[in-house]
Design a protein around this nucleic acid. Structure first.
Lengths: 111, 111
DNA sequence: CGGATACTGAATCCGTTACTTCACTTTTGG
DNA sequence: CCAAAAGTGAAGTAACGGATTCAGTATCCG
């Protein structure tokens, strides 16, 4: 399970930024160069490159440089890791809520 | 849909902190006072209270003060909002990957 | 070749955030 | 009633994060 190596801390941190989520949304339209990404964002090329490093660091995008242009695309690995985290915790929390419900039902029954 | 009011930005920011995720994990065991939460974390009561404000702000926990003790518990609303965001984007991204696959297949066919 | 393009790296700036301390209010148990 | 317990509020601090600028490097096109 390759996606387990993705640090959930980095993942949430990466997604907790509007610009980075905008980059991801943009990449849904297809692979794109760094400049193409930067153009509608109103920030520097450098800033975009920094965001891309973070997104790559938690496997949300993959980039590849050919010639002088770096092409960026969506990488589902980090996304899968996030999904797995949520599923795991959802069941934990739901189990807890179920237990709470059971306790309340028990109290009602004994009253 | 009450959970739509939850700001996804705040949500990711809230979950992007180890201590806050630890608080959530701890609350899975059941409702707890602020001091009880603070004790194993090695940080001040004040710090925990601040984290709780953030977690409440995006509907991940709910707290209620009775007497001098504030009881904290898991609140699924924010969690649901997160889940919905992920589902929506997963389909977006997968659609994109499908389209990519189709394009590659087309290229193969035309070669 | 030479100039434009597409980035990269380093240093810097400034606002935000996590955490602290300390003084204070409220509640509660003996 | 009074001292300990539980939490609140305000102010301060140190580190981090997103962004900038500027000076490079590598690549491409005419």
């Amino acid at each position: 399970m390759q996606a387990d190596t993705v640090d959930i801390d980095r993942l949430f941190h990466a997604l907790g930024d509007t610009t980075r989520r905008a980059i991801l949304d943009r990449l849904c339209e297809g692979p794109m160069s760094v400049s193409a990404l930067a153009e509608p964002l109103g920030i520097t090329l450098t800033a975009v490159a920094q965001h891309l490093q973070i997104l790559e660091g938690c496997a949300l995008v993959r980039t590849e440089k050919t010639g002088r242009v770096r092409t960026c695309r969506i990488e589902p690995t980090g996304f899968d890791a996030l999904d797995r985290w949520i599923r795991a915790h959802r069941t934990l929390w739901e189990r807890r809520l179920d237990r709470l419900g059971a306790m309340l039902a028990e109290e009602d029954a004994s009253s």
